[in-house]
Simulated assay, not measured.
Amino acid sequence: MYQQLADTVAARLPVPPWLVDAAGKAWAVDLANKRSDRAVIVRPATVLGYSRATWEINLGCNYNCEHCYLASRPFEGLSREEKFLMLAMLRDAGVLWLQITGGEPLIDPDFRAAYQHAYALGMMIEILTNGSRLHQHVDLLATMPPHKVTVSLYGATAESFDSLTRRRGSFKNTMHGLDAARAASVPFELTLIITKHNAHEREQMRTLAEQYAVPFKEFSNISPTYTGGPDPLATQAPEYLDKTAVFQGCPAGHTFFHVDPHGRATMCKIGRDNPIDLMAEGLDGLVRLPAIADAQMLRTGGCSGCKFSATCRVCRPLAKAYQAAKAPLNTYCQHGN
């Protein structure tokens, strides 16, 4: 069926009946009597099994949040042409779902061009943003809709919000972005970041999210930096730590991977050992990634032979970052209970 569709698109013939039927049933999309080359993107066949990727387009950020897991936020990375080349490699690796993050992705000078390029390559895109520049891009996002935009909410008032971001006016800017997205019908969700600065506003934050009538989730388990720096842990509100979630395994490095602003691929945002330079090695380098990921998931140090591994709350790379930060066991380990 893949080959039939590829031949149909190449010949600019109408969409095959089986796809017309499937698209109608699954998505209520009417492809009847439409030219296939105008309705379908046929990806090249690939031996790589990656369907998802996350990409830090740039680590630079216009906020200075205390809880940030990034050890530093330099404003640097690939050129626009190199970004396009990297996105083409993601396509050829099989990536259909792409999460664009940062830093703050919407302040990157190449964001619009990179987004348009990824969209044209047939990717479903999620944007992780603080929302402060969202109003500047709603025209693009309304014309080329993302899968969703996920906006972090740092409080329900300017006092708590600006305290956490350490940027005066950040609450006002983010609310402006959310209002603009709602007015333009851009699909977005909210992540409520719960810390010691805003825990007293938790119910107000929920109410604010409900007023926008969008899905939202809460995030309170603040982690160290991915290099093991302890500073973000000081922002935790201990009484709100989620101790119910159990780590169920992860396909990082096998079905998805992470790319940093310089085009270096790792298993995920946290497990950054032995990065693969896509710009130097190309897609061939990704063949090594599953083994690199498996090595990082091995329990070492104080986690070797742990009898509580079946109820562990975090993955091994994240536990390693907690250990490097000398975090209390109750923040990440069942022994803490």
Results as ranks from 00 to 15, higher is better:
residue 179 D to R: 14
residue 202 R to S: 09
residue 245 A to W: 12
residue 246 V to Q: 04
residue 88 A to V: 05
residue 253 G to C: 01
residue 104 E to V: 05
residue 305 G to C: 04
residue 105 P to E: 14
residue 303 C to S: 12
residue 270 I to L: 08
residue 335 H to W: 10
residue 323 Q to K: 03
residue 140 L to V: 02
residue 65 C to H: 08
residue 181 A to F: 08
residue 277 D to R: 09
residue 123 M to S: 10
residue 77 G to W: 04
residue 24 G to N: 14
residue 255 T to D: 04
residue 235 T to L: 09
residue 161 F to G: 00
residue 214 V to F: 02
residue 77 G to K: 06
residue 173 N to K: 14
residue 78 L to V: 03
residue 75 F to H: 12
residue 150 T to D: 11
residue 108 D to R: 00
residue 20 V to K: 07
residue 65 C to L: 02
residue 122 G to W: 06
residue 220 S to E: 04
residue 76 E to Y: 02
residue 153 L to K: 07
residue 90 L to E: 06
residue 277 D to H: 06
residue 107 I to P: 00
residue 102 G to A: 08
residue 145 P to W: 00
residue 12 R to Q: 15
residue 241 L to W: 11
residue 173 N to C: 06
residue 105 P to Y: 10
residue 281 E to M: 06
residue 98 L to C: 01
residue 111 F to C: 02
residue 77 G to T: 09
residue 328 P to K: 12
residue 183 A to E: 14
residue 277 D to G: 10
residue 2 Y to L: 02
residue 211 Q to G: 14
residue 251 P to V: 10
residue 81 E to S: 15
residue 270 I to H: 05
residue 332 Y to F: 15
residue 102 G to C: 03
residue 324 A to H: 06
residue 126 E to N: 11
residue 79 S to N: 03
residue 251 P to H: 01
residue 160 S to F: 01
residue 238 P to L: 05
residue 331 T to R: 14
residue 225 T to F: 06
residue 276 I to H: 05
residue 256 F to N: 07
residue 330 N to P: 02
residue 240 Y to I: 00
residue 115 Y to Q: 07
residue 288 R to F: 05
residue 81 E to W: 06
residue 300 T to A: 09
residue 162 D to Y: 03
residue 187 P to Y: 01
residue 186 V to Q: 02
residue 129 T to C: 11
residue 307 K to D: 14
residue 320 K to S: 13
residue 326 K to C: 11
residue 72 S to L: 03
residue 158 A to G: 10
residue 133 R to T: 15
residue 231 D to C: 02
residue 22 A to P: 01
residue 241 L to E: 07
residue 187 P to S: 00
residue 222 I to A: 04
residue 50 Y to G: 04
residue 16 P to M: 07
residue 111 F to K: 01
residue 302 G to R: 15
residue 154 Y to D: 08
residue 320 K to M: 09
residue 161 F to P: 00
residue 60 G to K: 11
residue 138 V to K: 01
residue 250 C to N: 09
residue 61 C to K: 07
residue 55 W to M: 07
residue 33 N to F: 06
residue 243 K to E: 11
residue 170 S to Y: 03
residue 121 L to Y: 10
